[in-house]
Design a protein around this nucleic acid. Sequence first.
RNA 1: GCACCCGUAGCUCAGCUGGAUAGAGCGUUGGUUUCCGGAACCAAAGGUCGUAGGUUCAAAUCCUAUCGGGUGCACCA
Length: 554
Amino acid sequence: MEEVKIAIRICVRELFGLDIAPLVSRPEPEFGDFASNVAMQVTKQVGKDPREIAEALAAGLAKVGYAAEVAGPGFLNIRLNDDALKTLLEKAADVPQQLAGKVVVAEYSDPNPFKVLHAGHLYTTVVGDVIANVMQAAGATLHRVNFGGDVGRHVGMTMYAIIRYLGGEYPEKLNEVDPLHRLDWLSARYVEGNSAFEEHNDNKDAITTYSKQVYTLHSEHDHDTPFAKIYWICREWSYDGFKDLYQQLQVQPFERFIPESEVTPAGLKIVQEALDKDILVHSDGAIVFKGEEYGLHTRVFMNSAGLPTYEAKDLGLAATKWLDYQFDKSFIITANDITEYMKVVLQVLSNFYPEAVERTTHLTHGVIKLPGGVKMSSRKGNILRAIDILDAAKEANFHATGKEDGRVVLGAVKYAFLKQRIGGDIIYDPIESVSIEGNSGPYLQYAHARACSIMKKAGDAEKTAGTDFTEFERTLALKMTEFPEVIAIVLKEYMPHHICTYLYELTQTFNRFYENERVVGDLRQSKRLALLETYQKVLETGLNLLGVQAPESM
RNA sequence: GCACCCGUAGCUCAGCUGGAUAGAGCGUUGGUUUCCGGAACCAAAGGUCGUAGGUUCAAAUCCUAUCGGGUGCACCA
């Protein structure tokens, strides 16, 4: 692709004296291997008919070994010769090293201690892991970090309900909680605390006091008072629960959990400096950013009770990431209701660390729903938990196959989330996700196992990459050379679903080839085995990037 | 009220730095197996790309308006 672009660019420069970056695409197979609309692009500047320009370019390209035809209103359709295709094929399973030497900070998942992991957390964890995987494969040094609110009002609420449940500040009574259900127990307390807060003003005051007490406990490094003991034990329970889930999901481990408490001091410092610079101002007892002049919302950084809000803490987080890692790129994945909020934080931050803001990308995702659409609210407790999704997939898989295969269940769930463009709401259908047919994780896993099986059958027979392809061989070969281009798009757009779309198309192309051409035992066995090997490698590389296991048999 | 996101086949979704007859899966209907894993392949039916204007040689893609759905708009995260 790049070679073709360069060749066209040189032709355009030599023939018309223009320096442009030509658009080259992979057209419908009937048109050729690559297509470009340069002729139409430059028609005004050149002042000639697009077809005439295209003809001239085709002649120019022929001189450097590219067979090009002119079609339609002036498209340039290019067909690679077999040697060029063979060369591309050698690099088909390679991830382009576009980020070699770059430092990337990836922030995703971001669950709050004292609350349950819901379906949205599962989603950002899976997608964030994949984006990070791809960047890492492209040569970047990755720092995977995970942020979470271990201070704040929700903690005050939960502490209130815990202490009420225990009948006082008796940390030893926590031993009575079933170790297997600590996270559920905590989230039940959170729900209770939340309703208590909404029910009565007295509760509200008590909860605010608890919230403050949690901040104090951090600033005084208190690990000894009964209140502090309860807090630290429960916070640890939360982190243990998170780690369990990540392990179950088989995602790359996080390098670091950054709790809000850790970045609060840094946040407060920036708030103070911003106040001095009049970036933030006092208003009704709170400290706010007046966003309207930037087309943004006005948001509170310190509330009138003197407590930092999420905004202040997030400033601290952003500063911490920047100062600790001096990243070249940074991405954050959150639910999309945070979009406007994040703009405000980044706007304030740009006054202090403009490079950090320029290098940061905020990605968002929508709500996860089940078919039928039950709405979720963690405050009321009727939420779709991460574990509910996994259980539903497990059940659907068992129902469909009569077997329990963790690889398939995990592959199904991850793929179901990954195959859609990040950003919108997702309707997760457990039955469809584990389906043995169609665009699903298990389908691709099966395709991989099948490829391995054929190779196994061939034993250690000779594999020699050849030229003079048959039509089906050539179509497959060409499709495989698209892989590095797909990865390049993912790196640019942060959109992992392109990998899914591509891998599915690839397996379809292979299946067509395989339906029509015999591999083992054919006169062309050696050439076809070489193609098969590349196919297996591309599929395996792609699935690995997606965090989906590529089984050799299933 | 203001802002942002979304609206493509019955369902779930690709395609959106404008380009060649709008694609896939599921579902529906019909077909293919002396042969390497049929979890496959082939074919048919199914679309005024929410609607209406505009820009352009060319619009699902860009602009404007409008309808419908979602989210956010000061002390939650």
